[in-house]
Amino acid sequence: MSEFTFAILIRETNKAKASSALRKLHVHSCLFPANGEWLAVATENAAESGAEQARYLSAELKTHSFYFIHAEDHGWHYDLFEHGERKGTLEINYETYDHSNPDHANFSLLKKLAVNEVALARLKNGLHARNAQGDDLLNSVEHFRQALGLETISWVSFDYMSTLSKDQLDEVGAVFIEPTNRKRFSADSIILGLYFNHQRVDGPMDFHV
């Protein structure tokens, strides 16, 4: 079975602050530490909306974020955001041994975020090689993870996290975040709704006791 990862990575260590921002997305999610500087998020619809969710969290928390995808048999991709603005993107295709323009990866910003500059240099050099070799591209995702200290971000998705036991979740410090309700009804609105609905069906409702 091949790895599929759909993860949002936030440069934030305050889980309560991140949880509050996540609830505003109105989507079920799982939050856990990726390392000492980054939190990882898996949302139930990350495959469709992960980039926009990463952009929102970057803006809401005024920090950097990645939307990171790795499909082991196909390739990998990231979008990098800073305070809600897309600052970099990279896509590697394992099937065609091709990749997007390295100039769009924003290696200058990656260098500021990196914890392992040697791994980052390997990623950059492999992409800038005139004829990138297959091994360079196949190993590029590991260079990326090592550069940011994100080696644990593998097999991360909401579906996968949902299969873990409580002990396994506790081991990685993971918590599930329930979305904030989109609508809240006051008691008065419920009574008025019943009143007008009753009017249409049975005629006027008598509120006198």
Rank of each mutant, 00 (worst) to 15 (best):
A59L: 05
I69W: 00
A71V: 14
G36P: 04
C30S: 11
T43A: 15
N45I: 10
L80A: 02
T5A: 07
L61S: 03
A71T: 11
G36E: 08
G84N: 11
L61K: 06
S58W: 04
D73S: 14
S20L: 07
L61E: 03
H26R: 13
G50L: 08
F68L: 15
V27H: 06
F81G: 10
W76D: 10
R86Q: 05
R55D: 09
F4R: 07
E72L: 08
K17T: 03
A54T: 10
F4E: 13
L22R: 11
Y56W: 00
T63L: 05
S19C: 13
G88F: 09
S65C: 01
T5N: 08
W38Q: 09
A18S: 12
L39I: 15
G84R: 02
E48Q: 06
E12V: 13
C30L: 05
H77P: 00
K24P: 01
E72Q: 15
L57T: 06
G50Q: 11
S20V: 06
F81L: 08
A21F: 09
W76S: 11
E3Q: 07
A54R: 03
A34M: 05
A7M: 08
E48C: 04
H77W: 01
H26W: 03
N45P: 00
S49W: 00
C30T: 06
I69L: 13
D73G: 12
A59H: 11
N14K: 03
F32P: 00
T13C: 05
A47C: 09
A47W: 01
E3C: 01
T63S: 05
H74G: 12
A7K: 10
